[in-house]
Structures are given as structure tokens and as C-alpha cells.
Design a binder for these strands. Structure first.
Lengths: 141, 141
DNA sequence: CATAAACTCTATAAAAAAGATAGACTTATT
DNA sequence: AATAAGTCTATCTTTTTTATAGAGTTTATG
């Protein structure tokens, strides 16, 4: 399960993407719109900024904005940034690998093999789907 | 990421499956073989027993054993039992659903749509792969 | 039937992670 | 100068995870 942090990040990014034309967006606006604690959201947006995903402007008329078009922001990147590994086991993680301490040889471990497949199946989606793909779908009347 | 509890459960089940012919297996044997704290493992095996996956025999010559053939024990079942939801978001979980508190309408939420796909991709593997599929692969000389 | 072996059960504790809050500071606009 | 807004660091609370303790129960067996 993704942490609240990552969940909030997605919702904030969605709001920013859907309001790109309006210039910098206030933290407080996002917090209110998405029902998130403003102080908690502050930390999250800052992390996204430090990772180069968001930009910000201080002072009056300031706020946060996307640094790249939504279609260039992969969902996997956000998850890894805020939650760490996407894989179900450390011994199968591409970015946060750790040796398995319970099995004798990962190369012949069947669990390792299956969990690698789960990782690949998830990544196939999360690496290719972007912020653009999770914007609110327009309902055609 | 799966909890240690679930990871240990998998390793314990693997050991039990690979030694099915030897009658009940001691907790202490599994703990030593798989490098797991014996007391922690005790709790895990008990949970697996209460869920009907393992059986046990008390007293001398006792221990734990599988209640079903390995090919009938799906990996998804073990994860759900010990870790809960497999989905990345509560609003997308089949067994542990919770309403999304940050979006206005799940039906048109793009995040919900993508995460449903991730869930399905993971479940396709985890519901179909069983304990039999994660046993140590025999290396043919 | 006594003994020892082994699982059972409940409680608790320690550690880590998650979630949230506080407040002083800096920058920018008007 | 005043105000609006992000920045930064620290701290705190709660929850979850991981682990341990110990008394209780069951069973085999000599």
C-alpha cells in the first residue's frame, strides 16, 4: 500500500496539472481542495521541488507549479521518491536492492523469481503511465 | 513492500513444502534453517494455522505441516492474511476497500483507473502462482 | 503416570515508520 | 514597510512492525 505521503503527492500533482494555466498555485488551495493537512502537504511539495519535479515562487502571487509537462512525469518516479521501492521484496528491487537473509541462493529461489515478475508487471504500468494519464477523465455529455 | 511477517511466512511455507515427507516439522528447525527469530515465527505459524493453511501436532514428535498440497496455496492468500491489501490504494482494493477521501468521484478518477490496472496485473500473478511455484528450483547438472 | 517435548495463548515491550504540527526564517510584491 | 507566500528544521504523537516473555496445554513414551 502506498503511504499517505505518496497518495497526497499524487492528488497535489493532479491539481497542479489541472490548473497549469493559472500560474503558481497556493499550498493552501491544494490542501483545501484535496482535503489534506496544510503543514503536511508543505513537506511533500518541498520534497517534490527538491527532486526537480516542482518549481516554486515565493512571496505574493507565489506558489507551486510543475517543472515539466504532465506527460513527462512517470508515476513510478513519484512512488520511488516518496515511498522507496516498488517491488514487494528487497531482494527483487531494482532501485533499493538488499540481499535476502532468509534464503541461501537468490539465483535459484522461486520466490525471488515470482516476485520479479510481479515487479515487472507493475513497473510496465507505473513507468509508462504519467501524470497526464491520471488527470480527471472528462465525462462527455 | 511486504512485511517481514509475510516474508518469513513464505520462507517457512517453502521449508514445510520441501520437507512434507518428513512428518511434522519443528518451529525451531524452520527458525534455524531460515534465520528467523523463533518466537516471532511462532506467532506467524499460529496465524497460518488459524487460517487453515497449516496443521500442527503438539508434544513430542509434534510440529507443523501443510494442510493442503502446495499447488493449492495461492501466494495472494498468504499476503492478504498477513499483510492485508495487495492493491496500492485503499480505493482500489478488492478485499480491503476504503473510500478515497481526497478525490471527488472515484468513477472518473484517473489515479483510481491506473491503480486498478496495477492491482490486476499483480493479482494475475499472485492469484495464480502457488507455493509449488516458489519452491527452490532444482539445478539440473 | 511422570517427564519432557512441543505447540498455544496472551500480554507486553521496543523500535521504527508514518503522519502531523510548530515556528522562526527568507524572499518577493506592492 | 507591510504582507503574502514558500523554506527549513525540529519535534511530537500515533500507529505499525518486529520481537520477546512466560505460563499453559497437549502428547509421546519409558
Amino acid at each position: 500500500m502506498l503511504s499517505k505521503k505518496t497518495q497526497y503527492a499524487f492528488h497535489a500533482l493532479i491539481h497542479l496539472a489541472e490548473n497549469q494555466d493559472k500560474g503558481p498555485i497556493l499550498i493552501s488551495e491544494i490542501a483545501q481542495e484535496k482535503n489534506i493537512s496544510i503543514k503536511f502537504l508543505e513537506n511533500i511539495l518541498l520534497e517534490l521541488k527538491n527532486a526537480g519535479i516542482l518549481g516554486s515562487k515565493k512571496g505574493k502571487g507565489g506558489g507551486y507549479y510543475l517543472m515539466k509537462p504532465p506527460k513527462e512525469i512517470a508515476l513510478a518516479k513519484i512512488i520511488r521518491l516518496l515511498d522507496g521501492a516498488i517491488a514487494l521484496l528487497p531482494c527483487v528491487s531494482l532501485n533499493y536492492y538488499e540481499r535476502c537473509e532468509n534464503c541461501k541462493d537468490e539465483a535459484i529461489c522461486g520466490l525471488n523469481e515470482v516476485m520479479s515478475k510481479v515487479r515487472d508487471a507493475s513497473l510496465k504500468i507505473l513507468e509508462n503511465k504519467t501524470l497526464k494519464d491520471i488527470l480527471t477523465r472528462q465525462v462527455t455529455i
